[in-house]
């Protein structure tokens, strides 16, 4: 899909899933927005609008807000079962956050950026989307994923940066 063409992928470094996020300097999640009613969908699955009173079937790809506020957070202290692919041996715990994107009216889950844990988070705190390595393939390819990184409170958060 067009997501692939908009994405510059360095050799040996590829998204763990195609078409869900961009990987440029200012990475963003990719959703689809209904041309009829404006409902936004993430992941960008499906070819029709899920608003039951809409019935629209024309969806356009959109970049979602890069900043949002923490809806809640937790962490994984034990290694998740397959198909999770651990990046390190032994396993290193990681945090996860559900983040509210005001402009889209969505809450999106994601892992929290490397180096940050639950002590760095609180409900309502601002975070920004980054792309980091999720795991390394058997052939050495780094598989990347979107993550939420705590940032200083400031302008732009919650305003959605007008990217929709």
């Amino acid at each position: 899909m067009s997501a692939a063409s908009a994405t510059t992928v360095a050799p040996g470094r590829r998204p763990a899933v195609e078409g869900w996020f961009t990987t440029g300097e200012r990475p963003a999640l990719l959703g689809t927005r209904c041309r009829a009613c404006g409902t936004v969908h993430f992941p960008p699955e499906g070819s029709w609008c899920r608003n039951p009173r809409c019935g629209g079937d024309e969806l356009e790809e959109v970049e979602l807000s890069r900043r949002g506020r923490v809806w809640s957070y937790t962490d994984a202290r034990y290694q998740p079962p397959p198909p999770y692919v651990p990046r390190t041996d032994p396993f290193e715990p990681f945090a996860l956050a559900a983040v509210e994107l005001e402009a889209e009216g969505l809450v999106v889950l994601g892992q929290v950026a490397d180096g940050y844990g639950v002590d760095d988070l609180r409900v309502g705190a601002p975070v920004e989307l980054v792309v980091e390595t999720l795991y390394v393939d058997e052939d050495g390819t780094e598989r990347t994923i979107w993550r939420w990184k705590p940032v200083e409170d400031g302008a732009g958060v919650g305003a959605g940066e007008g990217e929709r």
Partner: peptide
């Protein structure tokens, strides 16, 4: 259900943890 494990490592307790944390913070 497969993708949430693959891409997020999100187990069932991940979701329970999110709901629990909201009770604490809110």
């Amino acid at each position: 259900d497969w993708l949430r494990f693959r891409l997020l490592g999100a187990t069932n307790p991940t979701y329970f943890g999110l709901y629990a944390r909201r009770r604490i913070d809110l």
